[in-house]
Simulated scan of single mutants.
Amino acid sequence: MALRLPWKRRMPEPEAFVDLPDDADLVTLVIGERTYRDLSVIRTPDRAWNFRLPGGLEEGATVELVWTADGRGGEGTGCVVRATDATVGIRATRVQTGIQRRGSLRVPATVPLSLTGPDGVSYSLTTRNLSLGGALAFGRGPEPGEPLPGRLDLPGQFVTVNARVLPGPDPVNVHRLLFVGLTTQAEDLIADYVAAQERRRAYAR
């Protein structure tokens, strides 16, 4: 009887791979029933995305990738091209970018929001409405410009955000904020809060 060699996953041909975007920093991997959230990307010259993932994965394994870049979603399918006990390297076989992952539902919400300016000054604001894409906030705030790190204090938990201040009806005390580069976890927390607020409004009608 001929000896049967262990089955090994087949690696896609080189032409099957596509390039991944350069503007994603944190990526969530979904492998079967396992999810690894917000892993930092290490890029290498062969256009692979590399991740520190203890335990590694089998080469040839298929993974789903989800990320946020410039306020929009991206998702794709990849293949493990390298695997060690500490890291994996993944190349994509399918990529879609510019996705609005959830509806832009906006609800009235009074939530504390703090931003930290480039000079280290802290700005304490209060939202009047909130959505996954941003908020309208009142209080003495920073000038419009580049995204600033901040903290959104939802009931019972806080969410780390980056917010770009846009010109508002009152540039000193009223600010339109655009959330930029939210992590998957931050998206989930904000989306859950917005959905809960909308349900409360529906029940009150």
Score class of each variant (00 low, 15 high):
108 P>I: 01
94 R>M: 06
49 W>L: 06
77 T>F: 12
93 T>C: 01
72 R>G: 02
78 G>Y: 09
102 R>Y: 12
77 T>G: 13
109 A>W: 03
90 I>K: 01
68 T>G: 01
63 V>F: 11
74 G>E: 07
83 A>E: 11
42 I>E: 12
83 A>D: 13
106 R>S: 08
49 W>S: 01
111 V>G: 04
99 I>C: 06
95 V>T: 14
46 D>M: 15
89 G>Y: 09
72 R>Q: 15
50 N>P: 03
81 V>K: 10
48 A>G: 13
84 T>Y: 02
83 A>I: 06
89 G>D: 14
111 V>P: 07
90 I>W: 02
73 G>L: 06
104 S>C: 04
48 A>F: 02
102 R>M: 05
68 T>Y: 07
97 T>C: 13
74 G>W: 00
91 R>E: 02
87 T>F: 09
79 C>M: 11
107 V>L: 13
105 L>Y: 10
108 P>E: 01
52 R>M: 09
64 E>Y: 06
74 G>C: 12
74 G>D: 10
106 R>C: 07
82 R>A: 12
100 Q>G: 04
61 A>N: 08
81 V>Q: 10
75 E>G: 10
83 A>V: 05
51 F>R: 00
76 G>M: 00
85 D>A: 15
56 G>W: 02
66 V>Y: 07
80 V>K: 02
105 L>Q: 10
108 P>H: 08
78 G>V: 08
86 A>W: 14
64 E>D: 14
93 T>G: 03
113 L>Q: 05
113 L>M: 07
66 V>F: 12
111 V>M: 05
49 W>M: 11
52 R>N: 11
49 W>D: 00
102 R>F: 10
76 G>T: 10
81 V>W: 08
73 G>M: 03
98 G>A: 10
110 T>P: 02
75 E>M: 11
62 T>G: 05
102 R>V: 09
85 D>Q: 14
47 R>G: 04
82 R>M: 14
103 G>V: 06
52 R>V: 12
112 P>N: 03
69 A>Y: 01
58 E>D: 13
64 E>I: 07
105 L>K: 08
62 T>R: 10
49 W>Q: 02
42 I>K: 08
45 P>G: 15
51 F>A: 03
